[in-house]
Design a protein around this nucleic acid. Structure first.
Lengths: 262, 262
DNA sequence: GGATGTGAACCGATTCACAGCC
DNA sequence: GGCTGTGAATCGGTTCACATCC
């Protein structure tokens, strides 16, 4: 504060990315406590509820400011507000959902959006048989209207929930319309200009990561684990063709164009 | 340094977590190339397709072994196979989807699963009006049958796509039935014993992270950045109540129990 | 020549451990 | 006495830059 070298005031702009990614988790834990009428919480308790350790929690919160009380803990309501403000949830964000398949519908009906300042203002799809349908009090518009809709509603975040093949083209269009934040559910790596943020949620990638770890469990952590015996550090080329892919289990089946859940 | 016995073979079991998380992305990029008939790819090209830089890609792949050819690049088909094997995708994984709302349906119909060795063997829900319904050639079973279904099909990965309130209880049940990998879409932090892996996909957290960055863009990086006006670094108690949450924009609205998209 | 594979330098994030304050 | 806030140590991951090999 006044005494020490500031310029890194609190409310510092440099919140680490890893911290930002956890703030929503803390916020959720806090609103849970709030609903149960808890007024004050220690870093230990909150950390447990959020699934992290307390040192990390304290460090994270320290990036926002000094909002706790030594010997006591954090005031729940106050911390909810501070985190909300930091994340930008005290203002409304206008969201458009592009692609109204099962996933798009799930997103449209998701209670967690509205309650956190996200207002879904438009649903768009290319499928004529869906256009006009009412979902959650909203009418599905045709994708041709994308640019109008973005401009009219002041959309600032686009959610892409289309098949992979359509995603990049639609992304280009929303970016051209001035949207700088995109949440992508389609299984493609979207290319965007600098200044545009893309976050990706990929259902099958998460499963693959689980499979990796699951595979290692089978046989016990140290059984098959360190892989004893053979193969101590030689990646000899002559061994390469021993087992061929692409036939037995369909790994080469075309997957990219049918994946998304629209 | 060498205090603990250090077995650093190739085909080392110690693939960094960050690398594991990217392997599915590389795999997807590679299968895309494969479908376009590309036989060989350089780290530069593959990195671009996967949205990472080439040094990182090479380092990542080096953890699997030495599968490239200097001066040439990587053979696509071979690399697809090696990554698949490393991730455990050359075997089949039996998946149960718990919660058959919009999200569960989206997941059930997701082509990206089957094509990568994930076999959805069961759909379960508590809602009697859904039980018995046919979805993607599968009949929805009642959640009471959970334990039977897991045992009968040898389920090894459970996907939880239920409302938040139901998630922990169901998680406990699948874990008790021997499942050690859980993919959680419900907006709660699941508590599980050691040895069980949980991965979480949270739709609203991703949006919140985008909102954070979007907020900072408005006004330019250093313009509005430090957020002038009120609250320049004093966490004085008397100021604390100046702006109240939880009325204007619904921050305190109960959110935890209605969020998931089921 | 041209690409991979990899030590070494670097950087950010996590954890430790304790000073500071209630 | 108890709990926060934070320097210092540590760890893991990224990037650099170049030796290595086809």
């Amino acid at each position: 504060m006044t005494s020490r070298q500031n310029r890194r005031d609190r409310s510092d702009r440099g919140i680490p990315e890893a911290t930002v990614a956890r703030l929503p988790v803390y916020l959720r834990a806090l609103t849970g406590l709030q609903e149960r009428g808890v007024a004050t919480v220690s870093s230990e308790e909150l950390a447990a509820a959020a699934g992290v350790n307390s040192a990390k929690l304290r460090k994270d919160l320290s990036h926002l400011g000094s909002y706790g009380t030594r010997g006591v803990g954090y005031e729940v309501e106050y911390l909810v507000y501070q985190i909300s403000r930091e994340l930008g949830l005290t203002q409304d964000w206008v969201v458009a959902i592009i692609g109204v398949g099962n996933l798009g519908r799930a997103l449209a009906g998701y209670g967690g959006f509205a309650s956190r300042g996200f207002r879904v203002a438009a649903l768009l799809d290319a499928d004529e048989s869906i256009v006009g349908e009412e979902i959650g009090g909203m009418t599905v518009r045709h994708i041709d209207r994308l640019e109008d809709v973005i401009a009219d509603h002041g959309v600032s975040i686009a959610v892409i929930a289309t098949p992979a093949a359509a995603a990049q083209g639609l992304c280009d269009r929303v970016v051209a319309s001035g949207v700088t934040s995109v949440l992508n559910f389609a299984p493609v790596v979207l290319q965007v200009p600098d200044g545009v943020d893309v976050r990706k949620v990929d259902l099958s990638i998460e499963l693959q990561i689980l499979a990796f770890h699951e595979q290692r469990k089978a046989g016990g952590p140290d059984e098959y684990g360190p892989r004893p015996g053979q193969d101590a550090g030689h990646y000899v080329e002559t061994v390469r063709r021993d087992a061929r892919p692409g036939n037995g289990n369909g790994m080469t089946r075309a997957a990219e164009f049918t994946e998304s859940a629209t």
